[in-house]
Amino acid sequence: MGLGMTWLVLDRLGLTESGVCIINDVTLKVGAGRTAILGPNGAGKSTLLRLMHGLLRPSDGCQHWPQAFTQGMVFQRPVMLRTTALANVEYGLKLRGVNPHDRRQRAVEALVRVGLPAIADRPARRLSGGEQQRVALARAWALEPQVLFLDEPTASLDPASSREVERIIREIAASGTRIVMTTHNLGQARRIAEEVIFIDSGRVLEQSPVEEFFTRPRHAAAQRFLEEETP
């Protein structure tokens, strides 16, 4: 379980919204290539992910990126623009100022990698949920981010689509992109991640290599969580 160089440091990070503490004094170093954030419902998984990505501003503490990394994020529910699937993938590249020719080429390549070259010209919003999520992955992947955050990427999908999305996530990771994902599918976490961050009530209670977490969880809450979630 060789953990790489630390690429993200959270230092006493906290988030309080209208008097409610959602993330509480989180200090951790992320160095793994594939990280899963696990925890019960309402633990603050998605919030922590958004803090890392910069969508939310912490009310306490700070985070530190030793090197400036390009980032991307895929959400539980893909947000598709009312245009073709291809144009949706191109949109992200357009924002980065990629010229029209390269843009088209990279977008097509990304659609091929997620296995959807055939639907390039179809209206994105008319695609199935699974296809939309794959277009969202293509859109993120086309930007070749150094870190990709994924928030419950398969939570609203059927099993077949979930398997396909998992395959794509593993390929993205294999292409050199660091992955941080939240999920409540323990099997998925075990298949994809090399490190687990366990969070409960806004606090990080455990950070372990994946095998260690699933076989010998150190924290009592993590043990309870695994017992409850394992069939």
């Binding site: 990505h53 969508l55 947000v79 009312r82």
Partner: peptide, 23 residues
């Protein structure tokens, strides 16, 4: 609905406004 996705992709507010007008 779009806010997080557009910010994540790096769209400025002005750019977001234009995108939303079209969308």
């Amino acid at each position: 609905e779009y806010r997080e996705q557009l910010r994540s992709l790096g769209a400025s507010r002005l750019r977001s406004a234009m995108t939303l007008l079209w969308d």
